[in-house]
Every structure is written in structure tokens, then in C-alpha cells.
Amino acid sequence: MTTGYADVPLWAAIVSAAFILLGAGLSLVGAVGVARLSTFYDRIHAPTLATSWGAGGMVMGSMIFFTAAEGRPVIHEILIGVFVTVTTPVTLMMLGRAAVYRDRSEQNPGALPKETSVDRADTVSNHKGS
């Protein structure tokens, strides 16, 4: 099960290291955004850096490394990529709607547009079968 770095050819090590650094770096930038952007609706954009190319880079790096190290295609990491891509919209959409709903019900001056349907959420936006 375990593999050593020494089994990996140089080109694979370089490519995989580049992807891993890219992924980790973008995740860090996303976390910096979460920490220092000033409003909630700005901050909701920041984690998508980590979930799009952050996770993508790490997954690619890991796939290249294990494929080169074990001498056979190792692609199960792609499941993480697919899973993150499919679930992030659901979580962020629900969080966004919850935030809009809370801001509206508390009369927050969050620069929200006048007509949103969230206050009728029981009848609307159930198209995803939530």
C-alpha cells in the first residue's frame, strides 16, 4: 500500500509538486478571503477558490503521484473532485438563501434588493427536491 518518493520519475515529481502547490496556494488564498473580506456576501465567494482549483490541483497532484509511483492508473481521487464540485453549489446556495432570509427578516440594511422570493420559500425554489 505504501509507496516511496524514490519510485517516482523526476518529471512526475515536478508536475505533481506543481499541482499540489497550486492547490494548496489557492486554498490558502480562499481562506485569506474568508478571514479578511468585510461582508458575508463577499466572503461567500472565497471558499469556491478552495473547492474549484484548490481541490482540483490537490486531486490532480495526488493522481499523478500515485499513478507514477505505482505504475498503474490510480484515478480514485477524481471522486473527491466530482464530489466537491457537486456538493459546493448545494451548501453555498443554502447558506446564501439562509443569509438573505435572515437579513430580510431582521430588516438589515445589507444592500439587499427589494424583491427576493426567499420570504415565500415554502412555495418557491423547491425545484431541486430539497
Binding site: 518518493y5 524514490a6 512526475a12 505533481s16 506543481a18 494548496a24 486554498s27 490558502l28
Partner: peptide, 19 residues
């Protein structure tokens, strides 16, 4: 190649920990 992978993983884990 061992050095490259070790350095990259060390930096990546540091960045993720900071994140």
C-alpha cells in the same frame, strides 16, 4: 525527486494549516 516532493508537500501542508 525526493527533495522536490518533500519540499512541495511541506510547503503545501504549511499553507493548508495556515488556511
Amino acid at each position: 525527486n525526493v527533495l522536490i516532493m518533500q519540499a512541495a508537500l511541506f510547503i503545501a501542508q504549511l499553507m493548508l494549516a495556515l488556511a
